[in-house]
């Protein structure tokens, strides 16, 4: 598979770009040394590609495929995957069973293409027995799925990749680096002269055009949940793509987009996802978490 990347020079930093995990990926390196910038870009691309290949549910050669095609047998997983599953388990409990990595099968009936194709109640009822992390036997490092169930680490993977990449780059490069994979962002240190990185937040009504505001980020992670382009519209009701795994239906009155700043990208990502799952209580939830957030 050919992998391409670009390196652009700015006044006092470089921008490296490539595509991975089906989104534009970007890293900003606060240095004047081109070799350092190239090195950081190579590390970022390698790590993003590695995590994509390892955890993508679209591949047939990885651990996710093996688990999803285990037909009820027990699978032993490696330590990294085990770490992800432990984390998914904790998120399931912390979100009161709303964040569920087994809910991916709902995509078989819900296709968010802006159309009015709403599944029937019967279709939803039929698929619910195949959902529920509590139906899975997870005893690190062994996982057993019931037949017909699937797991999807997509809700964790990108944010995880951002933090992992940031940490790996930081092991060999002392200059500040900002990692941005499709809007999920992290940095471990401020730029030169202790100036923050500035991050623009999208207006969900005007995707990609107007920035709602600029967020200064010295260190930490930022993530956005919600996608203005992914919804269904029927009888004047807008169905968001955030699905409640306990009902099989979209979460009513979910915000269009939630952006959170936290210690790490993964933490920000989970808080914004949990907020979406709270529906009209999203703001209340985020206020209780004592974090910086934008809810639209």
């Amino acid at each position: 598979m050919p992998q391409t990347s670009d390196l652009i020079t700015r006044d006092d930093y470089f921008i490296g770009r490539f595509t991975a995990m089906a989104c534009p990926c970007e890293i900003l390196i606060s240095t004047n040394d081109k070799k350092t910038a190239i090195h950081a870009l190579e590390i970022a691309q390698a790590e993003a590609t590695r995590i994509e290949q390892k955890f993508s549910r679209y591949r047939k050669d990885n651990i996710i495929f093996k688990i999803n095609n285990s037909n009820g047998t027990t699978i032993e997983v490696d330590e990294e995957t085990a770490g992800m599953l432990d984390f998914a388990n904790q998120c399931y409990e912390l979100s009161d069973k709303k964040f569920d990595i087994t809910s991916g099968v709902l995509r078989e009936i819900w296709k968010f293409d802006g159309s009015n194709n709403i599944p029937s109640k019967q279709q939803v009822m039929d698929i619910l027995p195949r959902i529920g992390w509590n139906k899975i036997t997870w005893e690190n490092p062994f996982i057993t799925l019931q037949r017909g169930m699937e797991i999807d680490l997509g809700g964790i993977g990108k944010e995880y990749a951002v933090d992992q990449t940031t940490q790996i780059i930081h092991k060999t490069i002392t200059d500040s680096v900002l990692v941005n994979f499709g809007g999920d962002i992290a940095t471990l240190s401020p730029r030169k002269n202790n100036t923050p990185w500035l991050i623009g937040v999208d207006d969900p009504e005007n995707t990609g055009r107007n920035a709602l505001g600029q967020i200064p980020l010295l260190r930490g992670g930022l993530a956005t949940s919600g996608d203005a382009r992914r919804y269904l519209l029927k009888d004047g009701i807008r169905y968001s793509h955030i699905l409640d795994p306990t009902t099989g239906w979209p979460v009513p009155d979910a915000p269009r987009s939630v952006t959170v700043v936290a210690n790490t990208c993964l933490e920000a990502g989970m808080l914004s996802t949990f907020a979406m799952l709270e529906g009209n209580k999203a703001k209340e939830f985020l206020q209780a978490q004592d974090v910086q957030f934008w809810c639209a």
Partner: peptide, 8 residues
């Protein structure tokens, strides 16, 4: 959540 993310 911070502890869980940190562990991972």
């Amino acid at each position: 959540l911070s502890i869980a993310t940190c562990t991972l």
